[in-house]
Design a protein around this nucleic acid. Sequence first.
DNA 1: CAAACGTTGCCAACCGGTTTCCAACTGGCC
DNA 2: GGCCAGTTGGAAACCGGTTGGCAACGTTTG
Lengths: 334, 334
Amino acid sequence: MQVTIREVAKAAGVSPSTVSRALAPGGTASQRTRERVRAAAERLGYRPNPSARGLITGRTGHLGLIVPDLLNPFFADICKGVQARARGLGHAVFVSDSERDEGLELDAVRTLAPQVDGVLLCSPQLSGEELRGLRDLTDKPIVLLHRSEPGFASVTADLLEGMTDALTHLHALGHRRIAYVGGPRSTWAAGERAAGIEEMARTGTVEIVRVGSVAPHFDGGITGAADVVLASGASAVVAFNDIVAFGLISRFTARGVRVPDDMSVVGCDDIALSGMAAPPLTTVSVPKAHGARAAVDLMFRMLVTPAVDGAEPLRRVLPTHLVVRGSTAAYERG
Amino acid sequence: MQVTIREVAKAAGVSPSTVSRALAPGGTASQRTRERVRAAAERLGYRPNPSARGLITGRTGHLGLIVPDLLNPFFADICKGVQARARGLGHAVFVSDSERDEGLELDAVRTLAPQVDGVLLCSPQLSGEELRGLRDLTDKPIVLLHRSEPGFASVTADLLEGMTDALTHLHALGHRRIAYVGGPRSTWAAGERAAGIEEMARTGTVEIVRVGSVAPHFDGGITGAADVVLASGASAVVAFNDIVAFGLISRFTARGVRVPDDMSVVGCDDIALSGMAAPPLTTVSVPKAHGARAAVDLMFRMLVTPAVDGAEPLRRVLPTHLVVRGSTAAYERG
DNA sequence: CAAACGTTGCCAACCGGTTTCCAACTGGCC
DNA sequence: GGCCAGTTGGAAACCGGTTGGCAACGTTTG
């Protein structure tokens, strides 16, 4: 049995509407009434019914979060951060794993939108076209996370700088021929990283060997890429992300190639396990929890002050930094 | 602007209640009306307001999931599984990370309970007392996941068997002195695993060295434990879970102790990254996605047929199995 | 042909809060 | 003592669906 506002009212000797006002922060009620109502509510364990409240106010107190793959610790971390910040602001979070499937992603937004105040979307996959189509499905605010697109509010990390730092670090260690194993084609993150790599390639300080694109899963794709890296004559490799880096290292080890002695490896993301691996991974650290908090904060700003038509939404770009651990070493001329 | 049932009714030329019945699976409406209403709803992009529906039916269409730490891939995996199954059954999932904090955990249940149809609780930490107190806070059904407690419905894995398998495997490889690095004291999972270890210890086939308890985080605790393991003269070690195993391996490597050549390591859980590590980890595989699905299914059974007072709730125990990879090897008498 | 029956769709009540509007009461002041 | 301003609390409408009861209609059967 649920305790309703009417029971609280009866217990406090007032009307239901008075209870509502006494419990509301800005409501008009005498201190005495407020006290009495609060006591009665406390005693009965009263919790306002969210559905009833949502029905009249139009606000649910919920946020939606859509991620491509919770098994990637990068997104688990984001999920944790979003959830923690939202809780602090009195909101609960729906989490939906889209399995990198565009259909599921669209579906998730459609399903979630009516039951939330706003949607946080981690979607490296969807095209700008699809994103815009998706926004027409709902008038709920959308914040993109680790993805940017003109016309959308977003929070991203400066991957271009991160990649540049990684290559600079390897260059400083004496590496001159460096392989780059890219991520899923046509995703925003892949494009951003590739841009960083290309920028360095153009300067001519290092020679870049591009070794195609792999899915950030530990499967045949990565092991194949590892062999290509070995054949390329590169002394170091920059991976799309830490998962790919682990896959490469695993194959290198199986082939008898030691990391970092024979091959330096740099990952990207700095997922939780990167520091725990053997050897601990040198990687471009992307602010995950920080980005999550920023995205939630941006969402709340949008909820409080709805966007003016035509105004370009806010975009926030967070800095990255290289974390040097044990998977990179100076190049010893063989 | 939200499309309401009344607009659909007007468009279809019927009354709002007819729309509701035409759209309901078991509702009484002619095929012709059904068709017309469905078409109008489709055309207008009608989505029933969940709050309004929840208010009258008492069902929200939401599930709550509480986990101790999303950064542990074990729980991320569970989260993914729960989410996928719930989506298939038309439910959205609130995820709450309790950060292994009892206060936050209780708070999460209190906050979530009124807005969900049921709560899935991954709580290794809470005492039976606290669990029972927590249940008195709400009349919503609760299913425990990877934790059991008399009087609660639960889905767990047979860790006792898993630990026995791990020790049997090491014994078969010739190891006779084996260290066990336990997990957080006074948690259900730790007790269960310890029971498996003790059972084998009693048989006398192997000698067990107990190396205290560590938190499943990659910090000083684990590295300290690694040194104790090295000093103990054990040739193999079973870790509380994969995270701890990684921590141990990292320290071993730093100390120049090779895995598996000088020291065999067995983890527990089989998290996603275990197969990707170098060396790939031998570990006790716990059914994560399977357990998640089973828990959701159990929850739905409870929602359909509410528990009879006094009847002992269902408990489901899933099998575990040892996955032999590269972190264990035969013991070479030094 | 009338009565009985099944079908179909509408009206209205209801879920549990919030909010507007208004009545009553308080106290201050002339 | 009477009047007014300011405060306090209550009745009722409302949010958007669902559902029981019922009227109207068409069909079948005695």
